[in-house]
Design a protein around this nucleic acid. Structure first.
Length: 492
RNA sequence: CGGGAUGUAGCGUAGCCCGGUUAUCGCGCCUGGUUUGGGACCAGGAGGUCGCAAGUUCGAAUCUUGCCAUCCCGACCA
């Protein structure tokens, strides 16, 4: 009956899987590498979408929707991008099934129904979108073009993990076109800021903004900016990316505009995205051995009220009082669930809602009503307090705020404690193995050195932090001169 | 995609090596009752293509082969 959770110390990966499945966020499906997002997990995603969507619109973007299928000829137009994704594409080759003549209960692919041109299932939508933009953009008056789409994409991953890396996942992808390079770069950075703000303020996960090295850059981009977060096992996780695409896609898809002087030029592009992977980040940044811990600002349910009955006659009294509290909380915009299901007892509910990470639990029994109080328990610290029913709702609103702050501060302290400088190779390797987290070290700037470090240690350069301080030093591996430190980590 | 492991009711499992009645147990579920401040108790009951498919055999959860899915390690990956 008790849902036993693996502890983080015993097996971190298993702990994560347990939380996702037993916490009711998602399930495995019959399709390799694909998950079913369950209502509780999807409600979380919807709350994330709602805030992000609002932020995109505030920064001038509009939503649109482009097809799932990309004709192969379009897909291959931007060579670097196509090459980067080629190994993980799902491809549609036929458009019809027919009854197997040898077995009437089976269907087979109809060999007569082969497509003239294969369709690629989008691993990302640059190709189909830039092909479309060609028809939308003629003049500088059509710019900037600021479009976002919420969609699913497919990347045929060999090794998958719920939320962190699945063959199909949900995301948003912004695709913008601009008249000048400066404006496109500004857009790239602006959207990175939007992501950082969202992840820090709503998900309560601190991030480091930075730029990727050439090796780690998005295929087809000039620059890839990213936000990097740190998980409790000391591994880094890329939480979002924003790309400055230069004129690469404009040239590949021949998207030109005339400026005020009637001279033709290719437009400048950006693209940026975050995915359901963020849910994985959320889980691994905050949760504990008792279960999930949801940040109040995006929690599917912020408050749960559990009645503690004592005899039949107590039910109507408690229900009435609870419903009063529900009404007051709702009036202040708090999402609240009153669980008066009599099939499970209070203790069971307490454990269940802790597993699900609901930020605040209110327990209410006759004893409390006599004293005009309720028992309020916060998920992040498990602290319990008796609080007066008079003026309870505003107190809970404040508490939700405190919890949001507290889990952010906790994650921030953890993260900051795990950004360590290494000044020698031995120190670097030792830190990676014994402490984990981000290691700030000098690097000679070459792809070869980066590659060698990765081979030796599995650590990659997560990013070159924005506004990085410049200082002279020598590369941790090659000993060659370096002008700044970069952040290394083992990563998801 | 390579190596290893796993798959028996919603969940966790026994049985498998050494083939042989009606597939074990706990939780959950249903009915009734007693209960309710940290995963309640009593009584009765329902629930199974033993992952899927072929093969060996008089007989397969058990042996063989193929396939599917999951987990771990590796390669790969924005």
């Amino acid at each position: 009956m008790a849902k036993e959770l693996t502890t983080r110390a015993a097996d971190y990966s298993q702990w994560y899987n347990d939380l996702v499945i037993k916490g009711g966020l998602a399930d495995h499906s019959a399709v390799r590498g694909c998950m079913v997002i369950k209502p509780y997990g999807y409600a979380l995603w919807e709350n994330m979408q709602k805030e992000l969507d609002r932020m995109f619109k505030e920064t001038g973007h509009e939503n649109a929707y482009f097809p799932l299928f990309v004709p192969k000829s379009l897909f291959e137009a931007e060579e670097k991008n196509a090459e980067g994704f080629a190994k993980e594409c799902a491809i549609v080759t036929h458009y019809r099934l027919k009854t197997d003549p040898d077995n009437k209960s089976k269907l087979i692919v109809d060999p007569e129904a082969k497509l003239e041109e294969e369709l690629i299932i989008r691993p990302t939508s640059e190709a189909i979108i830039w092909n479309t933009y060609k028809g939308w953009i003629q003049s500088y008056r059509d710019l900037p073009l600021l479009i976002n789409q919420w969609a699913n994409v497919v990347r045929w991953e060999m090794r998958t993990r719920l939320f962190l890396r699945t063959a199909e996942f949900l995301w948003q992808e912004g695709h913008t076109a601009h008249a000048t390079k400066e404006e496109a770069v500004e857009e790239t950075k602006k959207m990175l800021d939007v992501y950082a703000t969202f992840v820090e303020e709503f998900m309560a996960v601190p991030v480091i903004k930075g730029v990727k090295t050439a090796n780690e850059r998005f295929a087809g981009a000039e620059d890839t900016y990213c936000i990097e977060a740190l998980m409790q096992d000391g591994k880094a996780l890329q939480a979002g990316t924003s790309h400055f695409l230069g004129q690469n896609f404009a040239k590949a898809f021949d998207v030109k505009f005339s400026d005020k002087n009637n001279t033709l030029d290719y437009v400048w592009a950006t693209s940026w995205g975050v995915s359901t992977r963020l849910i994985g980040a959320l889980i691994m940044a905050h949760s504990d051995d008792q279960g999930l811990i949801m940040p109040p600002k995006i929690a599917p349910v912020q408050v749960v009220i559990v009645p503690v009955y004592k005899g039949e006659e107590s039910k109507p009294v408690i229900d009435a009082k609870a419903n009063e509290i529900v009404k007051q909380l709702k009036a202040l915009g708090v999402s609240v669930k009153y669980d008066n299901n009599d099939n499970s007892r209070p203790g069971w509910k307490f454990a269940e809602y802790e597993l699900k990470g609901i930020p605040v639990r209110v327990a209410l029994g006759l004893r409390d009503i006599e004293n005009n109080v309720v028992e309020v328990a916060r998920r992040d610290t498990k602290e319990k307090n008796s609080i007066s029913i008079d003026g309870l709702a505003p107190v809970i609103v404040q508490l939700l705020d405190d919890i949001q702050q507290n889990i952010y501060n906790r994650a921030l302290a953890f993260r900051n404690d795990r950004i360590t400088e290494a000044n020698s190779w031995d120190e670097f390797v030792q830190l990676l193995d014994e402490k984990g987290g981000f290691i700030s070290a000098h690097w000679d700037g070459t792809g070869e050195t980066e590659e060698t470090i990765k081979e030796k240690t599995k650590a990659t350069i997560r990013c070159i932090p924005l506004n990085n301080k410049h200082e002279d030093g020598v590369c941790i591996l090659s000993g060659k001169p370096s002008t700044q430190r970069v952040l290394f980590a083992r990563a998801y």
